[in-house]
Design a protein around this nucleic acid. Structure first.
Lengths: 366, 366
DNA sequence: GGTCGGAATGGTATCGATAACATTTGATGC
DNA sequence: GCATCAAATGTTATCGATACCATTCCGACC
C-alpha cells in the first residue's frame, strides 16, 4: 500500500523516473530537508558532522540542487539579464565578460540577449527576459521604444543603461558620451594639423551610439570653425570591414581634398585602410584614418589605427559592481538611488594618423 | 476578515508588494488560472472572446508570466546551456549566435558559460549549469575532466560536443577534426611549393583543439616526408596577436631556413605577419604565413591571410537544430540515438602564402 | 427528443525548494 | 542543580504556474 497505484501525475513520474530530490538526501542523511538546504547554501548553522553526512548523501545519490525550485520559493533567481546589440562585437563581449566576472563572485548568473541593433527586437528581448524574473537588467544605450522603457520602469528591479549617458535615464547609468569621444578625437586631429576631416558611418537607423558619434563630429566641425563637413553613410549596422572599404572610395570621389577620416568603428577604419592599400593610396600620407573602440586589431594591424579606447571591460566591471550593490539594496528593501558613473575614454594615437613616414618605411630591410 | 492580519510570510509580502499573478489575471478576466495559462501559451483551446478578455486583463494589470514557476511545474525550463572557452573569440561567439538563432524559433533560451580554456573551470561551470536544469547542454571540445564527463552522462539530458570529433563521445557530436584541417592545409602548402614549414602554437595545456592541430601538423610532416618539423610554443591560451609576434621572432632564430609557418589561429598569424612587417621581412616572400579560423580580419588585413574556414556559424546552426530534435525526442520519452555530424572545412588561399608579388606592389600609384 | 462527442473550461494536486516560526539540544551562569 | 539562552534542527505553509482529470456546454445526429 505504499505505492500509489494511480496518481494524477503518472506520466510525469514515469518520464522523469529518478532524479533525487532534496527530500531524498534528507532521508538518507537522517535530517530534514531544511537542514539539507542550509548545508548546501551557507555552511554555517549546520554542525560539521551533519554537514558531512549530508554531503555524503549528496554524493551517494548524485544529487544536484534545483535552483529553479529555489528561485520560486525565495524569489531570488540569481539571474541578471544583459542585452547587447551583438555578441560578435568584441567591445560588447568584453563588457559582458566584465559583468560576468563580477557577478560570478556572488554566484549570480548572466542571461545574455542580443538585439541585433534593433530597438524593436530589443523590446521583444526585454519582454522575454522579464519572464525569467531577473534580479536586475542591463541594457546597451539609452534609447528604447516606449513600451520597452515602460517595461523596464515597472519591472521593479534595478536597471542599468550602459555605453551611453542618456539625458533621462531609466535607472542607473554606466557609460560615456559617444559624442564627446569624437569631439576629443577631432580636437586631436586638429592639433596634429588636419583640417579637412570627414566621417564614415553606417546608414542611420537604430544604432544610436553610431549616430551620437556623428553628432559629436558635426559639433566639432562647427566648434572648430572648419571649412566643411562630410559624412559618408554606407551599410546597415553592424558596420563591417567591407562597409569601410566601400565608404572610403565614395569619400575620395565626394571630397578629393579630404585629409583625414574618422570611422564609426575600428572595423570600418580597417576596411578603409585596406582599401587604400589596394588602391595605392598611402595611409596616412594621402588620407589619415581614425577609428573607434580600440579593437585588438587596431593595435596590431599595419599601419596601426588611431582610435578611441572606451574601456569596454571596465564598463562591464563597473556595471557588474553597481548591479551587485543595487541588488543587495533591493533585497534589503532599500532601493539604491539612481547612480551615474562615467567611464573615462582615451584617444590613442597610432600610425594611421601620424604625420611622419611609416615605421616600416624607415626600418632597414635585412 | 478578508485580510489576514499576521501571516507567516509577512516580510515577503511586504517586499514584493504588487506584481500581479496569474490568479489575479484570471479573477479580472472572470476565468480560471488554468485558462489564462492556456491562453498565454497556445492560443488554440481557448475561445477568441475569452482570449481577448484575458489579454485585456494582462494589459490592465501589467502582468508578466513567471517562467520560473512554470518551469518548476512543467519540468521544462526552456534553457539550453552552452559552454565555450571564451566569448571574445569570434569563432565561438559565431557558434553561440548560430545556436541561439535556432533555439529562438522554439522559444528556448541559451545559458552561456565560459570556461576560459580550463578544464577545471569547465567542470565548475557544468556543475553550476546543471542546477538550472537545462533541457540540453552543449560543450566545446571532446576532452573533459572525469567528473565533468560523469556529470554530463548522468544529467539525463541531451549532450552535444562541438568543435571536435571525439573518439568516445558523451552523446551527440557536431564538429570536425582539428588535426585533419591542418593536414589539409599542409598538403596545400606542399602543393604551392613550400617544404620547410613550421607551426606556432600556444603553450600546451587545456587547449585540446590547439593541440590537435599541432598533432595534425606533425602527422603531415611525417606523411609528406618533410625534412624536419619545428614547433614554437608561446603564451598561454587564449593565444593572442602578441604571442604570434613573439613566436615568429623565435622561429626565425630557431630555424632560419624556414619558408612557411602555420599559426594555431588567425590572431597569432596576424601577429606574426605584423611583426614581419616591423622587421622588414616580406610576407610571403621571406616567410609565408597561414592561420586557422577564418576570422574577419584574416580576409581584410594586408596581406590577407591564408586560413582554414570551419564554418563557426554553421556549427552553431547544426548544433541548435540537433538539440531541438534531441529535446523534442526526450520530451516524447524516446531519446535520440547519438548522432555525429561532421562540418566541412575549407582551406582558403590568400595573399599571405601567395607565390607571386603582393597586389599592392603591382598596383599603380595614383 | 435524447444521446453522444468534442471543445472549452474549472478544480485540485503538485513541482522542489525555502522563509518563518517552532522546537529541541547543549552549554553556560549563578 | 536549575534556569536561561543560543545554536542546531524540525514543521508547515507557500512561491506561481501547469498536468491531469472532471465538468460543463453546445451542436449534431439518429
Amino acid at each position: 500500500m505504499s505505492e500509489r497505484p494511480t496518481g494524477p501525475r503518472k506520466s510525469r513520474e514515469a518520464r522523469a523516473r529518478k532524479m533525487p530530490t532534496m527530500a531524498d538526501v534528507a532521508r538518507r542523511a537522517g535530517v530534514s530537508a531544511m537542514t539539507v538546504s542550509r548545508a548546501l547554501k551557507d555552511k554555517s548553522a549546520v554542525t560539521p558532522e551533519t554537514r558531512d553526512r549530508i554531503f555524503q548523501a549528496v554524493q551517494d545519490l548524485g544529487y544536484v540542487l534545483d535552483m529553479s525550485a529555489g528561485a520560486l520559493s525565495s524569489k531570488k533567481t540569481g539571474f541578471v539579464s544583459v542585452l547587447i546589440p551583438s555578441l560578435n562585437n568584441s567591445n560588447f563581449s568584453d563588457t559582458v565578460q566584465g559583468i560576468s566576472e563580477i557577478l560570478d563572485t556572488e554566484g549570480m548568473q548572466v542571461l545574455i540577449g542580443t538585439t541585433n541593433y534593433s530597438r524593436v527586437r530589443e523590446e521583444q528581448v526585454i519582454a522575454t527576459m522579464l519572464q525569467r524574473r531577473p534580479e536586475g537588467i542591463i541594457v546597451t544605450g539609452g534609447t528604447h521604444t516606449a513600451r520597452a522603457r515602460s517595461m523596464l520602469e515597472t519591472a521593479g528591479i534595478p536597471v542599468i543603461e550602459t555605453w551611453d549617458l542618456p539625458v533621462a535615464p531609466i535607472g542607473h547609468v554606466v557609460g560615456f558620451s559617444n559624442a564627446a569621444t569624437i569631439e576629443d578625437l577631432m580636437a586631436r586631429l586638429m592639433f596634429w594639423g588636419y583640417r579637412r576631416v570627414a566621417f564614415i558611418e553606417g546608414e542611420p537607423g537604430d544604432d544610436t551610439r553610431g549616430h551620437d558619434r556623428r553628432t559629436g563630429y558635426e559639433r566639432a566641425v562647427r566648434a572648430l570653425g572648419l571649412e566643411r563637413s562630410c559624412v559618408i553613410s554606407v551599410g546597415r549596422p553592424p558596420v563591417t570591414v567591407e562597409h569601410g572599404a566601400q565608404a572610403v572610395v565614395r569619400l575620395i570621389e565626394t571630397w578629393p581634398e579630404v585629409e583625414a577620416v574618422i570611422c564609426v568603428s575600428d572595423l570600418s577604419a580597417l576596411g578603409a585602410i585596406m582599401e587604400c592599400h589596394r588602391r595605392g593610396w598611402d595611409v596616412p600620407g594621402r588620407l589619415a584614418v581614425a577609428g573607434f573602440g580600440d579593437f585588438q586589431v587596431a593595435r596590431h594591424c599595419w599601419p596601426s589605427i588611431t582610435t578611441v579606447s572606451v574601456g569596454s571591460l571596465a564598463i562591464g566591471q563597473e556595471t557588474g559592481t553597481l548591479m551587485l550593490q543595487a541588488i543587495a539594496a533591493m533585497r534589503a528593501g532599500t532601493p539604491l538611488p539612481p547612480r551615474r558613473i562615467t567611464i573615462p575614454h582615451t584617444v590613442i594615437e597610432r600610425d594611421s594618423t601620424a604625420r611622419q613616414p611609416h615605421p616600416a618605411e624607415t626600418a632597414p630591410a635585412p
